[in-house]
Amino acid sequence: MLRLPRFELRQPTSLGEAVTLLREEGAGAMVMAGGTDLLPNMKHELFTPRVVVSLGRVPELRGITRDPDGTLVVGAMARIAEIASSESVRKQAPALAQAAGLVAGPQLRRAGTIGGNVLLDTRCQYYNQSYFWRSALGFCLKKDGVVCHVVAGGSRCVAAASADCAPALMTLGAVLEIVGANGHRTVAIDEFWLGDGIVNRRLAVGEILVAIRIPPTPPGHRGAYGKLRERGSIDFPLLGVACRLDVGDGDRVEHGDLVLTALAARPKRIPQAASRLVSTRLGTEEFRAAIDELGALAHRQCHTLANVPGDQEWRREMIPVYVRRTLQAAAAGNGPVHHV
């Protein structure tokens, strides 16, 4: 049995009220969206806030709408299940819809939110454990300790970015809308991450992610998400691969992107993806060669660590396999890619 530590629950009914509450409470407060990441972490005593501010009753954060210029505006409190089944998301951002559909299991997709998934705490098998378990090992860099159990002698936390939706949003060029006591700001999701496993995102105390803006995609846009995990449901990714192919006349690729996650503190883009894919024609030997080469490049550039469960060597060998299969799925207008 895992009990939550004591806290005071606040349930603001407007965004303004939530911002004011967070300003008053300062660092002693934490924001709760769906609670599916925060509450287990609190049960493990990874967080022990004095006040929890629930966004469940803030209407401004809900819903998926479209701006006149075609930008999809996804409220931060839109449920993961809503994203997975939304016709507009599936059409404009297939990689995101696929990634959302593979998050956790059906009950958690109903509770979890897109905002919560983007802001998911980094994960490590030496961190996501009960207080008792962690105390037996002498704690770690990320919480209460001074050593890293993943990298011997390591002084930098390597807990892994594990949000399925984040790499998909990166391929889509998403922009995050954030509100705090100092007003409103926007930040490109690529610029949002820090390479630090302890805190991997640039979000100040008291700030709330309110919406995610997904720019319009061209008619030939295709995308897919591949997820390696132990079981066909529930689990966090052992590896996540999001890709994008914008296809123009004559099945020629006009834009491409490839982002991997569950490796290090931030999702990792393969920078050569765009140049290697652009101007290749789908279904040709040239395209097959390009995706093979990208698989090999990703294998060279990405190193698996014992931060998440599973055999690291096997996870690394699966990188080219998942890169290839996910790009193939996108090219064919299929996906998601998963082995079970």
Binding site: L9, Q11, G35, Q107, R110
Partner: peptide, 18 residues
């Protein structure tokens, strides 16, 4: 799992007051 407004939800991760 319990049904909340007809949908299966995880009751160990929902605060009672919510």
């Amino acid at each position: 799992t319990v049904l909340v407004d007809g949908e299966p939800m995880i009751s160990c991760l929902i605060l009672a007051r919510e």
